[in-house]
Design a protein around this nucleic acid. Structure first.
Lengths: 255, 255
DNA sequence: CGGTACATTGAAGGGGCTCAATCCACGTGG
DNA sequence: CCACGTGGATTGAGCCCCTTCAATGTACCG
């Protein structure tokens, strides 16, 4: 039931929602954050948001849509580092270097809000509480990278695929983009392979195995996981690890 | 020319030195940071600093020595996530969860400085500039994780080993723990394998190949890389990626 | 209707694993 | 002073997971 007049205030911006889950935000801070995310720029599917080798004087917040961050090696092989979902900073850490270390490409049509470094630094100076919240939210992302790294280093192809699909499920659920057991995403087998260090044919066989076992159904960009528990067991996936996140009691006490 | 009386001020603490490379620190900030790192705790080799599953109400700064951060999987396999060198926060992101996600173990005798979350948050409130610097320094670490991830996903065994040894060289050089082409570290083949997702026998064969080619010499915990350029070419290693790091001009202008 | 993007399948090969044995240096207790 | 245990490096044989190469299928689109 969208209401045009109150749309903006009713539907908090993704970064605001994320930080509000971590700390209690004052009305002023909510306004400030929302305002920060107001200047949207649209990027069409398959277009680059950040290009390796270019220079940037700020970052972006992903408002809507999905993107991938990756590196192309000399021989043309691609390693996808992560899937970028609404509410996260695009350009960390790529844009913090003289010349961007990675590329970021829109997987769907996407809208982003540019935030210059000076703006970001100003925000930190004036609202250290937000800086702390942002830092804390980085811990969640760092944990996801670590899981990804563990998957590449020590897990089999089936485990990797299962793990990736489960992680996307949980992350999308957290931002209201997935229901209990399924989500919609233009996830090709090539993308899965490049994220997990696998070849396309083998991803295909792995997915077929999961499908034959009734654990995963992919059809028309709709990924369904009928038995989340069973797949989690197979993937050694701790559904809870992302939710076991917490701010220390000290934090709320201080403000 | 060591001078006992001024030892402390002359030899800044590792975290202070690191942040000073990123931003200009006031004398007061230097004092504050050094003081933060003054309460040392010793941890002997092979002892755990952080244990997976335990709860923590703060982090540590590694003052001296080397540690590893890792996860042990159900079947006993271990994936080392990174090597922890002096000046970095130990316990990010492990300690930010209700129960630590990873373990951290001392590789050498180590000294660490505990910093409670409340202390850390207080620091951020009072010195947002330091918060910014810390955030920026995280970007460097994030870049290293990404390179590690790329290695596991898309590089061959030789490339991985070469890359790891080079990365350690560059990082140790940055903190004065390595000379132009060698460093000292108790690096067993098992450690290398667990970091790179390889088996011990295969690490052995890979190292022998590198040794036969005259690219790497490991002897008595001393790692020597006679021809850094040649090894870098082999590993697709961008020696510069860690140094191409920068703060935006906007930052210095503001303060 | 031809082109493009993506999924699927087969055959063959190789990179890296597992298993297992051996070797070596070192420390320790008798 | 030697026997033994332990941590780590080394080497060999066999094999399997996953890759590469290549072909085919299929849906969609201009």
């Amino acid at each position: 039931m969208p209401s045009l007049s109150t749309e903006k205030s009713r539907q908090a911006r993704p970064l605001t929602r994320k930080l509000a889950q971590i700390v209690t935000l004052s009305a002023a801070q909510v306004t400030l954050l929302d305002e920060l995310q107001s200047a949207n720029r649209l990027v069409r599917r398959h277009r680059e948001i950040v290009t390796e080798g270019h220079s940037y004087d700020g970052v972006f917040v992903l408002i809507e849509g999905v993107a991938i961050r990756y590196r192309i090696l000399h021989d043309g092989r691609r390693q996808i580092l992560n899937f970028v979902l609404p509410g996260v900073f695009i350009g960390f850490p790529a844009c913090f270097f003289e010349t961007a270390l990675y590329s970021i490409t829109a997987l769907t049509d996407v809208s982003v809000a540019p935030i210059s470094f000076s703006r970001l630094i100003g925000l930190f100076e004036e609202h250290p509480r937000l800086a702390t919240a942002i830092l804390w939210s980085f811990a969640r992302e760092a944990a996801m990278f670590n899981e990804h790294l563990i998957a590449l280093g020590r897990r089999s192809a089936v485990e990797r695929v299962a793990h990736l699909l489960l992680e996307l499920l949980v992350r999308l659920q957290a931002i209201g983009m997935a229901d209990d057991s399924s989500y919609r995403l233009p996830l090709t087998q090539e993308l899965i392979g490049d994220a997990l260090g696998l070849s396309v044919p083998y991803v295909n066989r792995t997915l077929r195995q999961l499908r034959d076992d009734g654990l995963v159904v992919i059809k028309e960009q709709q990924i369904t996981i009928p038995d989340v528990a069973a797949l989690s067991a197979l993937a050694d996936f701790e559904r809870t690890y992302l939710s076991r996140f917490r701010m220390p009691a000290a934090f709320e006490a201080e403000s």
